[in-house]
Structures are given as C-alpha cells and as structure tokens.
C-alpha cells in the first residue's frame, strides 16, 4: 500500500517536472529572435536510424540558413509525450513542423492543432496516409519516410530472387515489439509477399523479439533446435538480426541460413562485411531527412508535385558494400 502511494506521488512529480520544462520552453521562446525555424519531432534519438535522418534534415536546413531544432521523446514507447512535444513545438510558431508520429492518431492530433495555428506539418515516418488525413479533415502538407509494408515486400522479393532452386523454404520471422507499427507491419508484409512469390514457403515461427538483441539470439537458437534445416531468418530490425546471426554462427550454420535485418545500422554493416549476416535493408534515413526538407522548400515555393513520396530503399549485402557501385551508397551513414 505504502509503495503504491509512493509510486503515485512519484508519477505526479514526474508530470510536474514535465510541465515545468514545458512552461520554460514556451516562455523562453517568446523572447527569441525572429529567425525562421524548422522543428523536427523524432521518435527516438537513441536509434541510429533517427540519428541519420536527423543529420540529413539538419544539414539541409542549415545550409539554407534556416534554424533547425530537434525534439525527441525519451523513448519511442512514450506516446503521449510525443503529443506534448508537438504542442510545445507549436508554441514556438515554426515555419514548418516535421513529425515522426508514434501512432497515426497522434500524428492526426498534432496536425489538427497545427492547423488551428496555421502552421504547416509534414509526416516524416510514413505513418499517416493522405487518405487518413483527408478523412480526419486535417491538412497534411506531405508525407515521406519509409513505408513499412514496402520494406517487408522488398525483403521478400530479395529472398525469393536468391533462392531460385529451393521451392520449399523454411523461414523464421522475428517481429518487433508488440504494438509498434514497424514491428508488426514489416513481418506481415514480408510473409504475405513471400507466400505469393513462393507458395510452398513454410513460416516455421513468427514471434516477437521485442527489438532486443538477446531475445533475437534466443529465438534463433531455440528455432534452430526445432528446425535444424532452417533457410531464412528475417528480423524486423538489425538489432534482433545481429543477435540471430550470432546464434546462427554459434550453431555453425552461417553458410546455410540467410539472416536479413532492416535499417542498415553501422554494426549490421560490420556484421555483413565479416560474413555473419547476409543482408540488411536500409531506407536511407539520411536521404529521407534531406528529401523532407527539400519537399518543404518546394511547398513554400508552390512547386511540390507529389504529396506522398516514400523512401528509396537498398538492400545492403557484402557485394553492394564492397563493390561500391551503388550511387545511393553515399547516403548510407
């Protein structure tokens, strides 16, 4: 009972601190100089994907003489914190607000509030579709980013293309955290597409690895116990893929099992180069950030043509990384 009370008190204290920071931010802004500003609300800065996207966005913005401000919640599960960040950002009256919303609902809610203040908002994480925005009577200037379903499909195509002589594939799918859109959508689309391309495919298990390295390793180990002749492991991010790749290496089956992740993080690239991992799909987050800012410029000039533009993706393999022929490779950071 006492502990519960303490918990509640602590929770309230946390809210108060948050409010204090909020007030400080909004207050301090009123006196700031009238420099044109773009604000970017990201999902989590502790993630290399968002770090690269940030770099692309900030460099492009600052090159045009505009101030770039980055806001980010403490972790990507903090959904309501995301909305509070949006409100804080709107107080600063930026020329443009870019948001990678935690959920569709939060994206729409943020756009509604921005609309009331006459501030332009764009989605940079392909979360809100144009149709959804229209349905909710909100004005989304444009949406860009990596389409999670497209990611799953592209990996499925890669797998199908590289296993022409094996009609009966045994595949393990490691999903992301339960309830997170990329964690669920990528595996769903992957399984659906692979079944289309290779109807005899057997999904031996599709299970959540919680975005966690150790869990990815554990799931791969256990699955190899049950299915020693496993052919493919697809993990919804590189973190879990690297864990799975270590498990495959331990079982001495690196040659037999294809391990593919998503994001193209630096450690995944290292694992691909040393042969532990087969491939990683990268959405080129640096380019997404760069392109989002360019689309904002086009909007301001009135020349924006396509309001929904999804990221280009490349699949990084040892060959792609070593041959250095892929022109987009310069955007892999």
């Amino acid at each position: 009972m006492k502990k519960l009370l303490k918990l509640v008190v602590f929770f309230i204290a946390k809210k108060l601190i948050f409010l204090a920071v909020f007030l400080f931010l909004t207050h301090g802004v009123a006196q700031a100089a009238e420099q044109k500003e773009y604000i970017f609300i990201l999902k989590a800065l502790s993630n290399p994907y968002w770090q690269a996207l940030r770099d692309g966005a900030v460099e492009t913005t600052e090159a045009a003489g505009i101030k770039a401000t980055i806001l980010s919640p403490t972790n990507d599960a903090a959904k309501e914190e995301h909305l509070a960040l949006c409100e804080t950002a709107l107080q600063k009256k930026p020329a443009f607000l870019f948001i990678g919303p935690a959920t569709t609902a939060i994206g729409l809610e943020c756009m509604k509030r921005a609309q009331e203040k006459g501030i332009r908002v764009a989605d940079i994480d392909a979360t809100v579709t144009l149709a959804e925005a229209t349905d909710a009577k909100t004005d989304m200037v444009f949406t860009t980013g990596a389409d999670n379903s497209a990611i799953g499909e592209k990996v499925a195509e890669y797998v199908a293309n590289h296993t022409p002589d094996k009609p009966h594939l045994k595949v393990l799918v490691i999903e992301g955290a339960i309830g997170s859109p990329p964690g669920m959508l990528r595996p769903e689309a992957f399984k659906k597409k692979l079944k289309e391309l290779k109807p005899d495919t057997e999904i031996v298990n599709s299970i959540s690895g919680d975005w966690d390295r150790m869990k990815g390793m554990q799931i791969a180990t256990d699955t190899l116990t049950r299915t020693p002749d496993l052919d493919v492991i697809f993990a919804a991010n590189d973190m879990m893929a690297i864990g799975a790749a270590e498990a495959v290496k331990l079982a001495g089956k690196t040659e037999q099992v294809m391990v593919i992740g998503v994001d193209g993080t630096p450690d995944a690239r290292a694992a691909i180069l040393n042969g532990t991992m087969t491939a990683s799909l990268t959405q080129l987050p640096y380019l997404i950030g760069k392109r989002a800012v360019e689309m904002a410029f086009e909007t301001e000039k009135g020349t924006l043509k396509n309001k929904a533009e999804y990221a280009q993706m490349i699949i990084l393999t040892k060959d792609v990384l070593t041959e250095n022929k892929e022109p987009l490779l310069e955007y892999v950071r």
Binding site: S46, N47, R213, M214, M217, M239, I242, G243, E246
Partner: peptide, 10 residues
C-alpha cells in the same frame, strides 16, 4: 554473447 556493447541492451 552478443559480440557487442549495446546502450539499449536489456
């Protein structure tokens, strides 16, 4: 075990 030092581990 995982061949890495991971700030978001666990």
């Amino acid at each position: 075990r995982t061949n890495s030092g991971d700030p978001s581990a666990g």
